[in-house]
């Protein structure tokens, strides 16, 4: 009984590394340990190789495919990887790529920030007041299902081809994931937690701040991550239609000027930028949902 009731501060689970496992007889000790360590690092290397194999194969195909497989005329439109990389380095050397990245990032960051601020605050209000939610929901559904790019002409007509229209369309595209996830997050709070909080004497404002908001944060962050992805996608498309700077402009401009390797350098930059943004947002999302890990796994 007493052994059962005394709390045992459980030590964090320790998984010993492989090479610390049962030692062989002393004579062979040195060699075996070395062999095991070697095997361990070989396994790690193999895993790493397997995980990057698809990308390496793709890059190899990109490099050698156009040279040996494609016909002469196709190769013009599909330059091998090294030509693209050289074009990219040139763009960096002249500072052109940096300024295009800066232009794109400024626009998407501005639109994204507007979307996040508006989406979260409106979402909280709408979710908190039930009647408002049932009133606005049909309209929100309609807007959400309208492709943002379909509205590009409208924004261009109303706001011109300057920064305003691009920031607006990014904000529009990023707004809905944030808004809808905020609403969902608030409305799916476990009613038991609300009951518990009320029984603890928490009244509306405190209840909202201490229970509803924290429990909605992971869902809201999922929305923010989705918004980040669509912010970049939509911006590139918008820049392709009408802009004087930005990665979308770089790509179309290179195409029109028949600078094909430059065009691919632009595309590659867009991919890497999207990847980077996504990794950052996933990290942030994970940080804010730490307490939920056990539920998900």
């Amino acid at each position: 009984m007493s052994t059962l009731t005394t709390p045992r501060p459980a030590a964090p689970p320790i998984t010993p590394p492989r090479r610390d496992l049962p030692l062989p007889p002393p004579l062979h000790k040195k060699r075996s340990t070395a062999r095991l360590a070697l095997r361990g690092s070989l396994t790690t290397a193999a895993t790493l190789l397997w995980k990057s194999a698809a990308i390496l194969l793709f890059l190899a195909l990109w490099e050698f495919g156009p040279r040996y497989l494609a016909s002469e005329s196709t190769r013009v439109f599909l330059p091998p990887l090294h030509e693209v990389l050289i074009a990219g380095t040139d763009l960096i050397a002249t500072g052109a790529l940096q300024s295009h990245i800066a232009a794109s990032l400024t626009r998407s960051a501005a639109g994204f920030s507007i979307a996040v601020v508006l989406g979260i605050s409106l979402g909280l209000v709408i979710a908190w007041y039930g009647p408002l939610h049932s009133f606005l929901n049909p309209l929100l559904e309609l807007f959400r299902n309208t492709a943002a790019l379909a509205l590009l002409p409208v924004f261009t007509l109303l706001l011109g081809i300057g920064e305003e229209s691009k920031i607006t369309i990014v904000a529009f595209a990023a707004f809905f994931p944030v808004l809808l996830n905020t609403i969902a997050g608030v409305r799916t709070v476990d009613p038991l937690l609300v009951r518990a909080a009320r029984s603890l004497g928490l009244r509306s404002p405190a209840l909202f701040r201490k229970v509803i908001l924290p429990s909605a944060v992971p869902t809201i962050f999922t929305g923010i991550r989705m918004a980040g992805t669509s912010a970049i996608l939509v911006l590139i498309a918008a820049e392709m239609v009408g802009a004087k700077a930005g990665l979308g402009y770089l790509i179309t401009n290179a195409q029109n000027s028949f600078l094909i390797p430059q065009m691919y350098a632009g595309i590659l930059t867009v991919s890497l930028l999207g990847l980077l943004v996504n990794v950052l947002l996933v990290t942030a999302e994970r940080h804010f949902s730490r307490w939920r890990t056990s539920i998900n796994t």
């Binding site: 038991l192 937690l193 009951r195 518990a196 909080a197 029984s199 201490k210 229970v211 924290p214 429990s215 944060v217 307490w291 939920r292 539920i295």
Partner: peptide, 11 residues
């Protein structure tokens, strides 16, 4: 109140 399902705030 103590509830059957603990009702702890997981965060």
């Amino acid at each position: 109140v103590v509830f059957q399902q603990y009702a702890l705030f997981p965060w």
